[in-house]
Write a protein that binds this DNA or RNA. Structure first.
Lengths: 199, 199
DNA sequence: TAATTTTGATTGACTGATCAATCAATAAAA
DNA sequence: TTTTATTGATTGATCAGTCAATCAAAATTA
């Protein structure tokens, strides 16, 4: 079986398995053994490639974030107007795979971990900043800068909140409802602003 | 030392210590030993009174929720109009002790735990429902029922989202800013609705 | 009241299980 | 032969949970 060039294959398999196991388990207190088993290798191999459990977890969240960023970049490129770009950001946040219970559970677990792991926290701060700045940049084309920052803050909070509420799986708010709630917020804030400026 | 009637005293000390340790540690992976040490008793006593770590954790979240409910009840009683009651709900959500880093960390840890523990999940669902229904009940006096439910959903999400974003401690949004962001949302939604109805 | 029994509070020491991490050994490709 | 991939076996640490023993206050009895 041993063939050269397995490293990237194994690394990916382990990171994917980690995400799956964390999502299923809903917690970062998963064992290296379980992750390795899901990836079809021995626990020793996981340590061989990642050095420690913490490192594997870091790589896992890195991959989760990369996926989200790639999706956002693609969605942003596909449209042109600032308003459409805002909608694109919202849509990506709630896209099906992000909204899957296992994915939400994984995000939540990482948020909790960020209270202790500086590196995990850094990754989540990057995510939060990216979401905010994507919104701010496009809102600034539609309203004054200070209002743009305020609205972006509110919209980002609403997105994260809809997300966390989803994790409880009670009174489930659908993807479409989540999107329109956020869109409504942006819309009514901009409308109130326009009206205020005329007066 | 042994005096009769220590049970309620010890239970409270242990629950308080658990909350403190969880908050500091930012995770539910805290040891019974650490909790017991903080409460000034032996680990064996903690087991004696609570039976298991899980049970102590359940009691801990129950106490966190009770505190919040009591505060909400008090705040709601203090005002009369529906609009003022909505503001009261918002204010309580962001009151200083709820917004303390340790408290936020504890909430987050419980949200993560809810992915695995049915009982923890039930408690958080109760919290989510209570927040929502407090908002809905008072919004219904100000707008149609379906709009009330929609706005309540959005406001609750925004509150939870501001909360979770606070946990990252980057770009800290102050208590006042959090309150006015949520108030703005309610206000602009109601305004848009009123305008729509006239037209 | 004094002596005795019962009961609640409390702990130190221990156990069993779990797990991350290590390492020496093997097997196959280069 | 050297290098890369891989694992089984093992180790050391950590913890939840148990238990028998202790201590002192209450309750009971003499």
């Amino acid at each position: 079986m041993p063939k050269v060039g397995m490293e990237p294959v194994r690394r990916k398999a382990l990171v994917d398995a980690a995400l799956r196991v964390i999502g299923d388990h809903g917690s970062l207190t998963v064992t290296m053994s379980e992750i390795a088993r899901q990836a079809g290798v021995s626990p020793a191999l996981a340590h061989h490639y990642f050095g420690s459990k913490e490192q594997l977890l870091i790589e896992t969240i890195r991959s989760l974030l990369k996926q989200l960023r790639d999706d956002a970049v693609t969605a942003l490129k596909a449209v042109n107007t600032p308003r459409a770009k805002i909608s694109a950001v919202i849509r990506v946040s709630f896209q099906a795979d992000q909204f899957a219970p296992a994915t939400i559970a994984a995000w939540l677990a990482f948020y909790a971990e960020a209270q202790r792991s500086e590196e995990t926290r850094r990754f989540l701060v990057i995510y939060a900043r990216r979401l905010r700045s994507n919104l701010v940049a496009n809102l600034k084309a539609l309203c004054p800068g200070d209002a743009a920052e305020r609205i972006a803050e509110g919209a980002a909070a609403m997105i994260d909140g809809l997300y966390i509420r989803q994790s409880l799986r009670s009174a489930p708010v659908s993807i479409e409802a989540s999107i329109s709630l956020t869109e409504d917020y942006i819309h009514s804030q901009l409308a109130a602003l326009a009206k205020g400026q005329i007066q």
